[in-house]
Design a protein around this nucleic acid. Structure first.
Length: 492
RNA sequence: CGGGAUGUGGCGCAGCUUGGUUAGCGCGCCUGCUUUGGGAGCAGGAGGUCCAGGGUUCGAAUCCCUGCAUCCCGACCA
């Protein structure tokens, strides 16, 4: 059951963690995934964190159907072009071929904006601030559990606004107060926020912003996206309204999503050779208690105390599991809970009852600590806090250590070809130089980074203005004047 | 969709070159006993249309043909 070493075979390690920790396995249909209880419990925690923030920023949940008439999709050329190759189509119903086939939604802009056309007549109907939790389908040539599956779970927010300023504010607000807040402050994964280059944008989007995170193999993972869609969908589906001034205008759209893919990110950002390391905010169990005993008499005494500890911690809103399975020995349980990434483990046996203490060990390592019964609750609360900050600071140092500012294109090319990390360099903003890098190194522009101030500005003022590179800065690829600083990396 | 490989108990594999009698091994699983503070030991046991279809042969997991599926490497993608 030993895992492959992360440093020796990262993909094999990834697969083995998912399998051995009981997170997921392949489904029957090509590229599909069975999410098992441990993986789903993590997803439920992530969902709750995201959903709470979506609601806190003024949105409501609703639900649209999975099946969309194919004819509807055909109206929207850009999205269709972007998604056509990966759309799965249902062609038969009731044993007969259908006149108008039904697609399994790859995303829901089309059906939602078609519906919005009936919901919006006046500026008084705006904004529409809606979100749905859903499954979506995209046929993929190659799938990997959580990272790329033919069906995945996500939330997709679809909002309609009176002005472009409002829509851009929304795009940025969601990124800052929902996604980055969850990913950085709950999942403890640092990253770079920024705009996508045109080639990497969502089909039909005017701007896509993203949070790009670094995995432990130094590749990038796009953890979420938030799109400013302008008036394209409103014009395509007729979402027109009377303005305050009595004129007519088309609504401005945003859409934004985060998916089960982030679970893959969680695994790859924090995991080590022993398995997962889960931040306390999403760990289905934050503390596992392993009782130790040699006979029934000891067992009942130990379990009684374990239950008392569990009850006590539970009242402090700590998620506790007592692993009282009799068929496994303690060492086996230690290894298993480490693999599953539970932050803290409490060992309690006859010796501890004697000394009125327990042994506690952290998934982040260090010596086991002996902690007295009466100090236990306070110790655990503090240890969980420390756990999170240590996990984040470890990930932050790793990221910082692997961001490189190349002095020349040769240097950058070599660095990126070997997936040595993220390269930050000035770029001329042109698609052909971007394509050249991709061809020569497999690396793409992950984003055009925004600073905190840039993001705050977008949230407050509704524009993506930002200072470009200093005048005279040259594109690292072509030597032409640079218009942007770009973050390059190989990506999942 | 191009290039490569592989399909054998739940999982991982051997056997195939050179066809042969009861298809093995490890892990896991079941039962019992002994164990239990870092992945337990012993004993007994269950579990197989050898991917599918066709062909060659006295005889096919093994050789031939066709199909299907999966995996890896590319291109596509959250």
């Amino acid at each position: 059951m030993a895992l492959p070493k992360q440093s020796e075979d990262f993909p094999a390690w990834y697969q083995a963690v998912i399998r051995d920790a009981g997170m997921a396995e392949n489904g029957l249909a090509r590229g599909s995934m069975v999410i098992k209880p441990w993986g789903y419990a993590i997803w439920e925690q992530i969902q709750r964190a995201v959903d709470d923030r979506i609601k806190a920023t003024g949105h409501e949940n609703l639900y649209f159907p999975t099946l969309i008439p194919e004819s509807l999709l055909e109206r929207e050329a850009e999205t269709v072009e972007g998604f056509a190759p990966e759309v799965i189509v249902a062609t038969h119903s009731g044993g007969k071929k259908m006149e108008d086939a039904l697609i399994l939604r790859p995303t829901s802009e089309t059906v939602i904006w078609d519906t919005y056309s009936r919901w919006v007549q006046s500026y008084r109907d705006l904004p529409l601030l809606y979100n749905q939790w859903a499954n979506v389908f995209r046929a993929e040539m190659r799938s990997r559990l959580f990272l790329r599956t033919s069906e995945f779970l996500w939330q997709e927010g679809h909002t309609a606004h009176e002005t472009s300023v409002d829509a851009i504010k929304e795009t940025a607000l969601i990124m800052r107060d929902v996604y980055i807040d969850v990913i950085k402050n709950v999942l403890k994964i640092p990253g770079f926020v920024g705009r996508k280059s045109e080639s990497e944008r969502f089909p039909g989007a005017q701007e896509t912003i993203t949070f790009e995170t670094m995995m432990r193999d130094k590749k990038a993972l796009q953890s979420c996206t938030s799109h400013y869609l302008g008036q394209l969908f409103a014009k395509t589906y007729g979402v027109q309204f009377q303005t305050r001034e009595g004129g007519l205008d088309f609504a401005y759209a945003t859409s934004w999503g985060i998916s089960t893919r982030i679970i893959g990110g969680l695994i790859m950002a924090h995991g080590d050779d022993h398995g997962l390391r889960l931040p306390t905010g999403v760990a289905p169990k934050q503390v596992v208690i392993v009782p130790i005993y040699k006979n029934d008499e000891q067992a009942s005494a130990v379990l009684e105390k374990a239950n008392a500890i569990s009850t006590d911690l539970t009242t402090k809103n700590i998620r506790v599991k007592i692993d009282d399975r009799d068929e496994y020995r303690p060492g086996y349980k230690y290894a298993e809970w480490e693999l599953k990434g539970v932050p803290l483990r409490i060992e309690i046996g006859p010796r501890d009852l004697e000394s009125k203490s327990v042994m506690i060990s952290s998934r982040l390592g260090g010596e086991k600590q002996s902690v007295n019964f009466d100090e236990l609750t306070g110790y655990v609360i503090k240890a969980l806090e420390d756990f999170d900050s240590q996990l984040l600071s470890e990930a932050q140092s790793f990221q910082q250590d692997n961001v490189f500012t190349p002095a020349s294109y040769d240097e950058m090319r070599e660095f990126l070809s070997e997936a040595n990390g993220f390269a930050l360099a000035p770029w001329n903003g042109k698609a052909d130089s971007e394509a050249q890098v991709k061809k020569e190194t497999k690396a793409t522009i992950r984003c055009l980074p925004m600073q905190d101030d840039d993001l705050n500005n977008a949230v407050q003022n509704g524009n993506f203005k930002r200072p470009g590179p200093a005048k005279g800065t040259k594109c690292i690829i072509t030597g032409e004047p640079a218009t942007e600083m770009a973050l390059f990396a190989q990506a999942y």
